[in-house]
Measured scan of single mutants.
Amino acid sequence: KCNTATCATQRLANFLVHSSNNFGAILSSTNVGSNTY
């Protein structure tokens, strides 16, 4: 594990990016499902 501020910031940034991608995918699939019905 790294405990430097830079490494922690990069890890946090990566986490936010992945979370945003997952959130966007969920919204996209939900919109497609609602449009189908």
Rank of each mutant, 00 (worst) to 15 (best):
R11T: 13
N14P: 15
F15W: 04
Q10N: 12
K1W: 08
T6P: 09
T36A: 11
A8Q: 15
G24K: 01
N22E: 03
A8R: 10
A13Y: 08
T6C: 15
R11D: 02
S20Y: 11
N22F: 01
I26G: 02
S34K: 08
F15E: 01
N35V: 11
S28D: 06
N21L: 02
Q10P: 15
H18K: 00
I26H: 00
T4N: 10
A8C: 15
Q10D: 10
N35Y: 06
S28H: 13
L16V: 15
Q10C: 08
G24S: 05
T6G: 11
N14Y: 06
S28E: 05
F23G: 03
G33I: 11
L12W: 15
L16S: 13
S20F: 09
V17A: 04
T30C: 05
T9A: 07
H18P: 06
T30S: 04
N22R: 03
L16D: 01
T4G: 14
S29N: 12
V32W: 04
A8Y: 06
K1G: 13
L27M: 14
N21W: 00
T6H: 11
N21Y: 11
S19Y: 08
A13I: 03
S29C: 08
A13S: 11
T4R: 06
L16W: 15
I26T: 02
T30A: 06
L27Y: 15
A13H: 06
T36C: 08
S19F: 06
N14R: 03
V32M: 07
S29G: 04
L12R: 10
L27G: 05
N35D: 07
G24A: 00
N3H: 09
V32R: 03
Y37H: 10
I26K: 05
A13N: 12
A8S: 13
H18C: 14
T4P: 15
S34F: 07
S34H: 10
S20W: 03
A8P: 10
S28R: 01
N3I: 02
N35P: 10
S34Q: 10
A25E: 03
C2N: 01
A25C: 15
T36S: 12
S20K: 03
A25G: 06
I26L: 01
Q10V: 13
F23L: 03
L16T: 14
G24T: 12
L27W: 09
N31T: 09
N21G: 02
T4W: 04
Y37F: 09
T4I: 12
T6I: 06
L27A: 05
T36E: 09
A13E: 05
G33K: 10
F15S: 07
T9K: 04
G33H: 12
G33S: 12
A5H: 10
I26Y: 03
S28L: 06
V32Q: 10
N35R: 09
N3L: 05
T30K: 04
C2A: 01
L12V: 15
G24Q: 01
A5L: 03
S34R: 09
T36W: 07
N22T: 02
F15A: 05
N31D: 00
N14W: 02
L27H: 12
A13Q: 10
F15G: 02
S20R: 01
N14I: 10
N3Y: 02
H18E: 04
T6S: 11
Q10L: 11
T9M: 01
V17I: 13
A5M: 09
A8G: 15
C2E: 01
L16Y: 15
K1R: 13
H18G: 07
R11W: 00
I26V: 08
A5S: 10
G33C: 07
C2M: 00
F23V: 11
V17F: 12
N31S: 06
C7Y: 04
A13G: 12
N21S: 03
S20T: 13
N31L: 01
T9Q: 12
V17Y: 09
L16H: 13
H18Y: 12
T6W: 06
G33R: 08
N31F: 00
F15D: 07
N31K: 04
S19E: 07
C7S: 01
L12M: 14
C2D: 02
K1S: 12
S20G: 13
N31Q: 08
T9E: 12
S34M: 06
V32I: 14
A5C: 15
T9G: 08
C2P: 00
T6M: 07
K1Y: 09
H18S: 09
T9D: 13
T36D: 09
Q10A: 13
S19A: 02
F23D: 00
T36N: 14
S28V: 11
Q10G: 13
N3G: 08
G33Q: 14
V32D: 03
C2Q: 02
G24R: 01
C7V: 02
T6Y: 10
F15T: 10
S28F: 09
T36P: 13
T4M: 07
L12T: 15
N3T: 08
R11K: 11
S34D: 08
N35M: 07
G24H: 00
T6Q: 11
C7L: 00
N31A: 04
C2H: 09
C7I: 03
V32G: 05
L16F: 15
C7T: 01
T36Q: 14
L16P: 00
N22M: 02
S29F: 09
S28Q: 12
A5E: 13
S34W: 08
A13P: 13
V32F: 07
G33V: 14
